[in-house]
Each structure stands twice: as C-alpha cells, then as structure tokens.
Amino acid sequence: MARRLDPIALSKPFVFVACLLPLAWLVWLTIHGDLGPDPVARLEHETGAWALRLLLATLALTPLRRLGAGAGVIRYRRMLGLFAFFYASVHLAVYLIVDLGGFWSQILQEIARKPFVTAGFVAWLLMIPLAATSTRAMMRRLGGRWQKLHRLIYPLAILAVLHFVWQVKYGETIAVREPLIYAGILAVLLALRVPDWLRRARRSGAQQQ
C-alpha cells in the first residue's frame, strides 16, 4: 500500500501558486494605486519581465538536469513554459488594451515600424504553437516533429531579449543593465547546449555517409 511519494508531483501545486504570485502582487498594487506615477509603464515592465524570467527558467531545466539536478526537473518544463506564455499574453494585453486603448491606428504603426515592438510581437506569436502543442496528446500525435517544433523556443527567447534591450532609451546606462543581465543568462543557457548540438550534428552527419 505504501506508494512511493513523488516529490515532483507533490511540489507542482506549489510551483503553480508561486508562478501566480507576481500577478497577484501586481493586482494588489493596482487596486491600492501603488504602481507609482506611471502605472501603465510599470505594469508593462513587470509583466514583460516575468514572462522573460519564466522563459529563461524553462530553458534552464535541461542544463540543470545535465548538471545533476535529477531527471525529474524536466517535468516542470511545461508548467513554466505555459506561465511564460501567460505573462507574455498579459503583457501584450496591457500594452494593446490598457496603454494603447483607443489609439488603434497607432498600434499597427508601432508593430510594423518599431523594431523592438516587432521583435516582442513575433516572439509572442512563436509561443502560440508551442502552447497549443503542449499537451501529452499533441506530443504523441506529432511524434518526432514535436521536438523540432519546440526548438522555436531558442529564436523566440532571443527575440524576447532583443525586445527588452532595444526599448531602452539612449544613454540609459543603468536601465540597460537589467535587459543585458537577461541577455547574459540566455547566452549561458544556449552555450551549455552547444556540445549537445555538435554531438547530434556529428551523429546525423555520420548517418548520412
């Protein structure tokens, strides 16, 4: 009768709630009027930053497993990835509805003409197929193609970091530090994968010969 306790399964509800805490905190600040002088800019910044943090956390799981954190950590990947998509969607909604609301012609102009807006929007678009195919049923249906599709996370993470770096105003040497920290973390997470990619490329090259 003593089924073995599965710590990952047990911890998942807590991780789920923890991922909702930033949202709860922002709602609390909004209700209490404590978002500061420019509340909309603050909401945009915080929701975007949390989307990026969760995206990087998602990307950190595979290297963590390699570094000996246990195979189980990979089971958090779907939840973290979906929360990254969730915060990115809230971020986009705040921008489109709360910030630009009523100025619809400006929306098209900004998405099409401002590179930092374009980068962020494309990153969000690329997340849609990943979120849509995150179920076990879709994984089975897509088979080997699932993995290929989900490699989209690499270009979209790069776009998300660029989106953050590019919107900093000229000369804001301090403001640019935060996006550059994320860029650095992403660079490390990608670099840790390079040996694997090389090995796989060599193997498939050998098969072709």
Partner: peptide
C-alpha cells in the same frame, strides 16, 4: 523608436 502621436498623462 516610438510614436509621438499620443501620450500618457500623469
């Protein structure tokens, strides 16, 4: 890098 067509009033 951004439009000047509108502004956020504080």
């Amino acid at each position: 890098r951004w439009s000047q067509a509108s502004e956020r009033r504080i």
